[in-house]
Amino acid sequence: MAENTVGTLRIKSGLADMLKGGVIMDVVTPEQARIAEDAGAVAVMALERVPADIRAQGGVARMSDPDLIDAIKREVKIPVMAKARIGHFVEAQVLEALEVDYIDESEVLSPADYVNHIDKTNFTVPFVCGATNLGEALRRITEGAAMIRSKGEAGTGDVSEATKHIRTIKSEIAALAAKNSDELFVAAKELQAPYELVKWVSENGKLPVVLFVAGGVATPADAAMMMQLGADGVFVGSGIFKSGNPIERAKAIVKATAAYTDAKVIAEVSRGLGEAMVGINVNDLPAPHRLAERGW
């Protein structure tokens, strides 16, 4: 009889497998977490300020207060995720000690290290990381990420960057799958990712971990579009609780994500949702304020 082993890649990526087809919602209070769970979220992301407020208020954005994370964990029974700053391995140690179910090493917070990401293989708790392209995704997986989310541009309500990033990752995977084996060595060099991982993606035509989309999803149609573009699921940050009717919008995005190919369902759930979050056009953002450019 084998011993029980915890923290293997299979167990870490396995939880992400179970979240597929679902919506993960940013929440900043236990009350919001309750709304998210009632609406059918597969998990909640506990944080102190949603990205739209981080953008508006500025300053350094850090890991949440442990009291807030504990309060949200007490409120809901679905998995609870929380964000650590890029490279801040001690924030990650704290979040692991708090027994969150997933850590997001996130560009939405202020980076703690502009050179290194966290060595995620040192942890039992799994990590999700953002990526704007395939090379970035593979570097995060090499560091131990068990789930990837395309970055989009958080806190804008503008889905265009999310679209760009999922399309980029998908088309780079397809290009890799079309290559001959003797072309993969240069591909690994160009992607700045380990050859073995590049070879695996080429042979299997997919990432070895689940790929969600994040950053700018604000409507049911946005969520369904991301699913039709090949996402395994959707993160919604500011889009729900910065809108006019969070309860109905949360339910509508859950339904549209599950029935993402059924335009009649998407039309039905899009009715009467009130105001979407006001939003910022990504093109109006000065480059230093673009979160997607954090992480490398």
Partner: peptide
């Protein structure tokens, strides 16, 4: 428990 208690085994 939470995800850190998830495990692999053979039965």
């Amino acid at each position: 428990g939470s995800q850190v208690d998830s495990f692999e085994t053979s039965i």
